[in-house]
């Protein structure tokens, strides 16, 4: 049996764990190809027109998988962290995938709910493994492997040290937008080419991010956005970046709220400059390049103007 996994949305978070799960169960996993322009176009045609860009990309990947696999694995991610919940799109993603076209292959949707400390949802993964034809032994070991991976997901240590002097730009955005080079149009490489070092939120220690997020007057309850906002606050408060690029996609619900919140918060703290880039399927490279160039130029200018009179080489800030 061939089990498909779309290379979109939360694949970029948990993909390796899912692949390991399927491998332990003993079925062949097919991950869809890297995103191309064609993927986005087919996705945008078939998905609902008001969904966000990642969902359209996801739909494109689903349609690519449709002819090639027997069953598709789209876990229903309900929360990424204890006390948090995921975006509604993640919760409804399997149902969305099922109603994409009438002839979709069966969609397996085990629940992934880290907020449920009793781990009752692990049973759904076990049932999934058995339905895929795993023996009870391999199923149990697959599920326990998955649980261990998820438990240690945020525990790994991240090197936060950085050398002073260079121009560092914090890129805050959803992993599935920033790391998909077609969706973000190679944003990270472009920033490197402009002579700045991009820093993503993966390079912030999870605990630091969450501790910063908790200082907000109302806690953000979306797990991923909490990390995102916390990372931005961490960068700005430790002055470890000269400017922050906030990357979001059009019609992204949590992104719109958190973006507005961060703009206001950084403004109140008189912190580093923040630029918001909104991606959608019509985004063109030229527009992105111009804005990136202008932003990096401004940061360079600000750091020069900042450094010359005082001559003590303080870290960049506006």
């Amino acid at each position: 049996m061939r089990v498909g996994i779309p290379r979109a949305m939360l694949y970029h978070h948990y993909g390796e764990y899912w692949l390991q799960f399927l491998e332990t169960v003993g079925v062949e996993a097919v991950v869809s190809e890297e995103t191309t322009g064609n993927t986005i176009t087919t996705g945008a045609v078939h998905a609902d027109n008001e969904t966000c860009l990642p969902v359209k990309v996801f739909s494109g990947h689903m349609l690519w998988l449709k002819e090639r696999v027997d069953v598709v694995l789209v876990p229903r991610v309900v929360s990424e962290e204890y006390g948090m919940c995921a975006c509604p799109k993640f919760m409804g993603l399997p149902d969305l995938a099922r109603s994409l076209t009438p002839d979709m292959p069966p969609v397996l949707a085990p629940r992934l709910d880290m907020g449920d400390r009793r781990y009752l949802w692990a049973r759904e993964w076990y049932d999934t493994a058995r339905a895929l034809g795993g023996s009870w032994l391999s199923s149990v070991s697959a599920v326990s492997g998955l649980l261990q991976n998820l438990y240690h997901h945020h525990k790994s240590l991240v090197d936060e040290s950085y050398e002073k002097g260079g121009l560092r730009v914090g890129v805050a955005g959803h992993v599935y937008n920033v790391y998909d080079s077609r969706v973000s149009m190679g944003m990270l490489d472009r920033i490197r080419k402009l002579g700045a070092t991009p820093v993503t939120i993966d390079e912030v220690q999870h605990n630091n991010a969450l501790a910063n997020a908790r200082t907000l007057s109302r806690e953000i309850f979306w797990g991923f956005e909490s990390k995102l906002a916390g990372s931005v606050l961490h960068w700005s408060r430790t002055a470890s970046v000269s400017g922050i690029l906030y990357v979001t996609s059009f019609a992204c619900g949590p992104g719109s709220m958190v973006g507005a919140l961060l703009e206001d918060q950084l403004d109140r703290e008189r912190s580093v400059p923040l630029m918001t880039i909104t991606l959608d399927e019509h985004a063109a490279e030229a527009g992105l390049v111009t804005r990136l160039e202008a932003f990096v130029d401004m940061l360079k200018y600000a750091s020069r103007a900042h450094a010359t009179p005082s001559a003590d080489g303080a870290s960049g800030g506006a």
């Binding site: 609902d48 008001e50 969904t51 975006c87 509604p88």
Partner: peptide, 19 residues
């Protein structure tokens, strides 16, 4: 409302219900 998160999901599901 435009781009409402929960209702966009229900809107995609409505196609199946309608059929």
């Amino acid at each position: 409302p435009f781009t409402c998160l929960p209702e966009v999901i229900s809107k995609t599901v409505f196609m199946r219900i309608s059929n």
